[in-house]
């Protein structure tokens, strides 16, 4: 068996976070399942499908955490100048 001699350090802290949502039934609510961190959208979609495969979801979607618009936030007092 060949030896892997090259190892490239990866800074995973730079990866984007993606929030994962899924629906269990057609007329059911969209649940927030959790998040994945990935270097790009394709990898994030693949990871989301593999990581959150515990149920036969009828719908699953992800969105970049950076594009989530806060309404009520633990960090910001929205509406208070």
């Amino acid at each position: 068996m060949g030896l892997v001699t090259q190892k490239t350090a990866r800074n995973t802290m730079d990866w984007d976070y993606f929030e994962v949502f899924a629906r269990e039934e057609l007329d059911g609510p969209l649940f927030h399942l959790g998040s994945v961190s990935a270097p790009n959208r394709a990898a994030a979609v693949g990871q989301a499908r593999m990581v959150y495969s515990e149920k036969p979801w009828v719908e699953m979607c992800i969105c970049p955490r950076a594009e989530v618009i806060p309404v009520i936030s633990v960090n910001d007092m929205i509406g208070i100048a």
Binding site: P39, R41, M50
Partner: peptide, 24 residues
């Protein structure tokens, strides 16, 4: 339905590689 996500995940990883890994 399942294999599509295998290919997509690998595609994502392949497009997030270093110059050294691209040589490989």
């Amino acid at each position: 339905k399942e294999l599509y996500f295998h290919r997509l995940g690998l595609e994502g990883w392949m497009t997030a590689t270093s110059d050294e890994e691209q040589d490989d």
